[in-house]
Design a binder for these strands. Structure first.
Lengths: 230, 230
DNA sequence: TATAAAACATGACATTTATCATATTTCATT
DNA sequence: AATGAAATATGATAAATGTCATGTTTTATA
């Protein structure tokens, strides 16, 4: 684990993408003075389910997955967190150990803000608290949607929707492939199925000319077709 | 729909079970003066997915289900909300139409607090905002757990866990049957399966002496056995 | 570049779950 | 109490998905 000092929060371009944007310059200076930074390599664990977090992370660069271990021993990916987002707020607020593990999907840069500083702002800055609340309300709505999809849709539909989601949320590279690179196993853990089933459906989608693959990379060819998948 | 005046918020025993407990007496008096009350009969809809709510509800008595319609035409029950809880906060906070429908499972008494009053408190009372935030953080964690269960567990396991959840959260009547009475279809919509499948598993559980049924009522006989279901 | 490990892919088969048909029971209403 | 509607129950069968085996390709690393 590598800790280094990075730039100042008040000048950081990342903050505009999350609730930190509601803080005053003065508050940002204070946070900046006590934050630490951390570089995490692809595959490394940022924190693990059950751990007690001593603060929150702000993702300066990279992408990670939030996973939860099911009692049958399989991992479920609950959410992908990208550059600009915060990590660990929920557990800080409900004052519990984290319920999810965070694992880097590529090399990441993180800033860590100690709990005491954040709690201070939650006490005093209503805008900040309300913005965190708004973000969490959105997360909750998304979670509701995921529940319905898991409960009511087929593996084919869930994979199609996952591909569309990743395409729309995180975009594509210049060659048209999805910019978030996931293994087939990761896809399986997002849609909640066996890796083999995921691979089979990917093969079907290829045959149906809905997607193309370049190595493990996936390119969406017919997004409208994917939307119509049943 | 029946509207009537009920008691005063500041004297209401229900408030201790939700975030309203953090409000000052003065704030409660103000809210009380503009709240309205509503009686809803079993099966009636309190609000519907897509509607714009003009405030939040406080459940004075009764139970309702929060459901979401899947694109395949099936309803998914996301949550049961009982006496003491609030209804509609999420949509109020993210300033969107509600993403779930609320339908009474038995006769209910509700108090309705207009949006303007609640938003006023969210602006000014940090304790209130923070408590709403805490509740939402808990809801989000629960939603994560549901996602994992949906994605990774069998219908048998999900039904077993649902029975245990209802038993532990809402208790039993004097004859030992679950105090929240759900139809087989409701159970199916909670665990995300076909009604017939739910009925079959209930029959299995009966044969395995894990539960007993009295009409449509269910009594848990061997809760440890239910926990071991695979 | 060689080599082993990991990831990807596919077939064969088992298991789970959905669907459709059809009884049976329960419940509300007359 | 009679009656029809809704809910519960069960069988037969189809469809979806999981599991295990095995082969191929990709990737990392010596």
């Amino acid at each position: 684990m590598l800790w280094e000092t990075m730039g100042k929060c008040e000048q950081c371009i990342i903050k505009q993408f999350n609730s930190l944007k509601t803080l005053t310059n003065e508050e940002l200076v204070r946070i900046s003075s006590c934050k630490t930074s951390r570089v995490v390599k692809k595959g490394e664990t940022i924190f693990e389910e059950g751990e007690t977090l001593k603060g929150i992370y702000c993702v300066r660069d990279g992408i990670c997955k939030l996973t939860k271990l099911s009692s049958n021993g399989k991992d479920q990916i609950i959410k992908l967190v990208v550059k600009g987002e915060l990590l660990g707020q929920r557990s800080l607020i409900s004052d519990e150990s984290v319920n999810l593990s965070a694992i880097a999907l590529n090399d990441m840069e993180l800033c860590f803000i100690p709990k005491s500083e954040i709690m201070n702002d939650l006490q005093k800055n209503t805008n900040f608290t309300f913005d965190i609340l708004r973000e969490m309300a959105i997360d909750l709505k998304e979670a509701d949607d995921i529940i319905v999809n898991m409960a009511q849709k087929s593996v084919r539909q869930r994979l199609a929707e996952t591909l569309i989601y990743i395409n729309d949320s995180f975009g594509t590279k210049s060659d048209g492939t999805l910019s978030v690179l996931l293994s087939r196993e990761d896809f399986a853990n997002i849609i909640g199925t066996a890796t083999e089933s995921t691979i089979r459906v990917i093969s079907q989608f290829k045959k149906e000319k809905l997607i193309a693959t370049i190595g493990k990379q996936i390119k969406i060819i017919d997004i409208e077709g994917l939307r119509r998948v049943e």
